[in-house]
Computed example of a mutant assay.
Amino acid sequence: MTTDRRGRLSAALCRDLADFADLAAEWDALHRRCPTATPFQSHAWLHSWWLSYGAPGRLRVVLARRDGRLIGAAPLMLVHRPMPLLVPVGGAISDFFDVLVDDEDTAAAVGALEHGLHRAAAHTVVDLREVRPDASAHLLFEAWSGARSSRADSTCMELPAEPIDALIGRMSSSRAQRARAKLRRIDALGIECRPAPVHRVAGAIGTLLRLHELQWLGRGVNPEHLRPRFCAHLVRSARRMVRDGEASVREFLLDGEVVAADLSFRSAQLTGGYLYGADPRLRDRKVDVSSMLLREIAREAGGLDRGVLSLLRGSEPYKNHWAPDPVVNRRLLLARSTLEPLLRLRETQLAVRDRAAEAVGARFPAARNWRGLLGGLPDAGLAAVGRS
């Protein structure tokens, strides 16, 4: 592509699953060198997702290299509905999207990715969902030489990466008093937290999903959580991520019986609870499950330098008890200048979908998740602590 004093830059498109699998080691190294990367950009998560959800012939991963060294990556896929689009690998069950760029060679990585993506999007619009405000994808957006557009996406709730006592200190005095009482009750019952080692991840994930189904019985569980492909994806990805220190699977035991389990992720700057399951009988014992889980996740997040504890997508009322900061993700649309009419058409489609979702939500408040179902591929989040 170009050569400067630091070496030759090149951009390539990976379309073969076997080739993507072979990228694991250098992808992981780049993931560690990209400070904005979230767990949903790890190779373990993306490769496993493709095995469960990917369609043959649709993989489009843009790779940027300097003298053969991987310095940038944009994991995308081709879809044809509601129009030809390049969208993030990871789909609706991933809470955040970002491109990976080498922190030591950011400008070159962004430039090479822009060049490669411009070629890959010869006939399509690029539709990037759930981009965090500090994501590297914004650098790509600013460097884009064609048509572009940005709009608000999901709202996320975030807390400082601090121990639970510090988080309680953010509350009003009355709420803080109640929170401490809930945690004392958990301790008084003798509930034990047991992290699952790699060899027990599959069993712990199975228990988590069984309890998740039980807790939502009769209340509209997300059907994707009950499908074998979702279980297979979580087991595959979590095994690698637990091994590499990027995830934890925990079981909570009461009188020797597992009564709750959760899966959380972490990267350099972010820790978040992804999914949990809890025995409904805990309600009879007056156990506040969200407080119990958050305390353990906060212990993980406490070691981050200037990091955040993310409650991930959604602004459910229980999250507001912890006085979190709302953070709005962005949706970035990119297209070649010659395809600007297609980009404007995509904007119109999204505006129509949003108006329809607002109308449905106003008339049927319980149907809040319909917003994601009106856009072709499911857009609504499938996980996070407390999500159905």
Rank of each mutant, 00 (worst) to 15 (best):
G116T: 01
S267L: 07
R281K: 03
L377C: 00
A166C: 04
D187A: 13
G218M: 06
A108K: 03
A108E: 13
A107T: 10
W322H: 11
A261Q: 05
G91T: 11
A301D: 08
Q41M: 13
R239T: 15
L350G: 01
W322T: 10
L183M: 06
A135N: 11
A161F: 05
P324G: 12
G277F: 04
A25Q: 12
L334A: 04
E104G: 11
L270I: 11
R69T: 13
L208P: 00
H123L: 05
D95I: 04
G376Q: 12
Y276E: 15
T338N: 07
A108T: 06
P133I: 06
G361D: 12
V249G: 01
L332I: 11
R119V: 14
L309M: 11
E213L: 09
G375H: 07
D67C: 05
P84G: 09
L113D: 03
G169I: 08
R306A: 15
N369G: 01
A359K: 05
L263H: 10
D105K: 00
L9Y: 00
I186L: 11
M157A: 12
Q215G: 05
A24C: 02
R346H: 13
L270F: 01
L30M: 03
A64I: 06
L113K: 01
E316P: 05
K319C: 04
I93H: 02
T36V: 01
G68Y: 08
A11Y: 00
Q269C: 11
G91P: 02
S267M: 06
G256C: 10
